[in-house]
Design a protein around this nucleic acid. Structure first.
Lengths: 335, 335
DNA sequence: CTGAAAGCGCTTACAG
DNA sequence: CTGAAAGCGCTTACAG
């Protein structure tokens, strides 16, 4: 109503109205010192009456913290990132921070990125080069890594899932229950650690069942529907024989199933197909996808919790590995 | 290397190094006044040498802008929001802003939310009550609405898609091509405008084909797999006859198909099912989903563009309605 | 074309 | 328990 409404109230106006000094306002606002109960009461009333809330920039400037946590990633859509982002958002909110999102799909990250914009950074695998990461480390900027182990000289905490054992379960299942022996593995994007560990699990499962590793059965699926579909197509064209596909992740599995159908092979009769992640749509494709459940949301939330510990100078785990769990549906041949 | 590395350089240090005043640094930084070429050159060198970047909070405080755009929504995952978020992120980045995300899944939004934290706000349908919205409007806080028309007394710009004509196309297709006459419509969440307009389109298509509207064929699917599945189950239990379902959106369609299969009805032979949005997984479910493509990412990006125009005091469309397009696959009975 | 000074809105020693 | 003062790191009239 009053024309002043447009300019938000400042701490000085609150102080005047309450008949105290700005320092006192600040103290009740932040609970940073004992204030006489009645004074505090008056202050609170004044704050309410003026609808006062402290200007974040002013606070940031003097306290040298932004109360924001940044997350750096490459993609926002796709099946994998939304749950991760959701977990991060939840964690950030729980800890009383705000969430600033940087997606690198459009630009190369500036090296100085985030320096005073956020109090700490959550960095997803592959969204920052080692040199930049090292620079952060030298400046002791708080960071936690997602689905990526840090370079040896900047031992930031990281969180990821049990890729290897998950992959092992998957592959062993196809061998033991469905008697598959020629199992294709589709690698993810180059240098992707998840893919590396999944391949490790794949190989160990083979070995445990005395099946020789055959490099002809390895191809690149890029954790991507289209790329994975193409890979299968090529394998087929090359006349490579196989009776199962571990697609690398669920997105790739979808592409694999489509390509196989297209080529007249039936899933799972002719070939078993399995994914990884148990993304929401996996139960709805046809046949319903056998996969490994990765607690993606939990990964995001945990990362924030580690970061917040760092920010508070509390002791903080150097790494956390979240468990995965086999999810049997029908694309492997079950039921 | 030097111990000063830890405290980022300030504009004063740059000024000293360049042998000029802070004002001049500021001017070359912001291009806000003419500076002698050689001076400018020296300043740039000093900036580089110290790795200086201006402290956002200081800048914000004095300029009274944050260079951030906020987005308020309820959900981050699900099939619909990620593409929208991706479009928003892209738009924000293109305009040179940062993106602050508020998800309301965890908390009730404070009324003062965002007041000095962001320069403007993108608000998704249903994530803010009218009273709060009105308060923003009174303070002339820049906002654009997504998938929601503003209340009459706060005419904020909004962007959404052509729900009605999309729904009409879908329903007409089932009537004309597949000779369906008893078509169920599953409403979205209560008061959801998208749902309202889709129902409108549904009714008009019926009318255009001289099919009487039957309220028994309307149920609530909540744009949600589970709720939609339950709704269909109930219809079946109640002995309601139908030969087609317009599920409201793609998520709901997935639940509908699952429920139908569960009940022994085949899709599309016994009943045609169609969705809305053409979310990424829609082509991969079985049968592949006939739906309407909504340019979700474009909606997000457009919203940002409108908001940025507001921020720059440029003339700005009061509304934009993005076109939808029929996507025929097999769940309707085609092919 | 450039500098000195004031000020943005807070918080935090320092006194009392 | 409370206030006066300095300062966080910038930008922007105002002079020159």
């Amino acid at each position: 109503m009053s024309p002043k409404q447009h300019r938000p109230a400042t701490i000085i106006e609150v102080a005047k109205l309450a008949g105290v000094s700005p320092s006192t306002i600040s103290r009740v606002l932040n609970g940073t010192a004992v204030v006489a109960p009645e004074t505090a009461q008056r202050v609170r009333e004044a704050i309410d009456q003026l609808g006062f809330s402290p200007h974040p920039a002013a606070r940031q400037l003097v306290m040298n913290r932004t109360n924001m946590i940044g997350v750096l990633l490459q993609e926002i859509s796709g099946a994998f990132f939304p749950p991760m982002l959701k977990g991060i958002e939840a964690g950030v909110r729980e800890a009383g921070y705000d969430l600033l999102i940087y997606s690198r799909q459009n630009e190369q990250a500036s090296v100085r990125f985030g320096e005073h914009s956020v109090d700490g950074l959550i960095i997803f695998a592959g969204s920052m080069d080692e040199a930049s990461l090292r620079r952060y480390y030298e400046r002791e900027f708080p960071v936690v890594l997602l689905h990526q182990t840090p370079p040896p000289d900047c031992p930031y905490p990281f969180v990821t899932v049990e890729n290897k054992s998950g992959a092992e379960m998957l592959v062993s299942h196809m061998i033991e229950v469905h008697h598959r022996r020629r199992i294709v593995y589709l690698q993810g994007p180059e240098n992707h650690e998840d893919s590396h560990w999944r391949e490790r699990g794949y190989r160990e499962a083979l070995q445990a069942h005395n099946i020789a590793f055959d490099p002809a059965l390895i191809a690149s699926g890029g954790f991507d529907e289209v790329e994975a579909g193409d890979a299968i197509e090529n394998l087929l064209l090359d006349g490579v024989e196989f009776d199962a596909v571990f697609a690398g992740d669920d997105d790739a599995a979808v592409g694999v199933i489509a390509a196989l159908k297209q080529a007249g092979r039936s899933v799972p009769q002719d070939v078993s197909v399995v994914g990884f992640d148990d993304v929401p749509f996996s139960r709805y494709i046809s046949p319903p996808l056998t996969t490994v459940r990765a607690p993606i949301e939990q990964v995001g939330r945990t990362a924030v919790q580690l970061l917040v510990k760092c920010l508070r100078n509390q002791p903080c785990e150097a790494e956390v590995l979240l468990p995965t769990e086999l999810v049997i549906r029908q694309s492997c041949g079950c039921e």
